[in-house]
Amino acid sequence: MTATLVAVQVLNGLQLGVLLFLVAAGLTLVFGVMDFINLAHGVQYMLGAYLAVTFYGLTGNFFAALVLALLAALAFGLLLEFVVFRHLYDRDHLDQVLATFGVILFLNEGVRIVWGAAPLSYPIPQLLQGTIPLIDGFGYPIYRVAMILSGLATAVLLWFLVTRTRVGMLVRAGATNPRMVSALGVDIRRLFMVVFGFGAMLAGFAGVMSGPILSVEPGMGDGVLILAFVVIVIGGIGSIRGAFVAALIIGLVDTLGRSFMTDIFKAFMAPAAANQVGPAIASMLIYLLMAGVLFFRPTGLFPATGR
C-alpha cells in the first residue's frame, strides 16, 4: 500500500522533472550561448498549450494539434527573437530582465484577450488513455508515462544534437567563446536564432504535453519559469547535463515533499502542529535545496566550462 503510494509519487515526480527539463533546456541553452536571460520563456510554454487548444479545436486530433502547435511555437519564437530579443543581446542583464518582463505582461494579457481568462483544456488522445497496473490494483495513467518517455527521448535527442552534430559543436563553441566562433566565419546571429527557435519549440512542447493534465490558463507559465530558474541555477547555467539532473531532483523533491512531509513531521510532532508546519516546509523545500547547493557550489552542480 505505502510502497505503491511512494511508487506513484516517484513517477509523478519524474513527470514533473522531465517537464521542467524541457523548459529549462531552452532557457539554459539560450543563456549559455547568448548570455541572454529570457524571462519570457515561461510564456512560450503557456503559448504552446494555448496553440494546442486552438489547433485541437480545428483538427480534433491531438497529434495533429501537437505538430501544428510546435511549428507555430517555433514561428512565434523566431518572431519574438526578430522583433525584440535580438536588440537586447548586447545590453546588460537588467535591460534583458525588464524587456522580457514587458513581453510577459503583454502575452499574459494578450492570451486573456484572445482566449479569455477561464481555464481551457483538451482531452488525452485515445491512444494514450487508460492506466498501467501497478502492484495491488493501483494503476498509473499511460499518458503520464508517455510524458516521461517523451521527455527522456527529447533529452537523448538533445544530447545527440549537442555532442554529435556540427550545429551542436557550434553551439558548444559559441557558449565558450562567441567572438572566436564569429571570427572563424560562422554567422553567430543565425546560430543564435536557431538556438532560440529550438528553445521556444521545446518550451512549447512542454506546454502542449501538460495541457491535458493541467488547466490551460493565463499566467500558467510563470510558476514553471521560476521552477526552471531554480533548476538551471542548481544545475549550473549553460549546462544541459546539469539541467537534466537538477530537473529530475527538483521534480522528485517537490512532489515527494508535498506528499509525505506532513506525515514525516507527524512522526515526531503533534498532528495539529504537523498539519501547519508540513505544507509550509514542503513548499519551501526546493528553495532550501537550492540555497544549500549554492552555499557549497555558488555556480551550481555542473558549471558550464569556459564561462
Binding site: 536588440h87 535591460d95 524587456a99 518582463f101 513581453v103 505582461l105 494579457e109 494578450g110 484577450i113
Partner: peptide, 16 residues
Amino acid sequence: EHWRVIFGPLLILIVL
C-alpha cells in the same frame, strides 16, 4: 482592463 497589453510594449520601448 487589459492595460498590461499596452504597458508591456511600452516597457520594452522604454528599455530599448
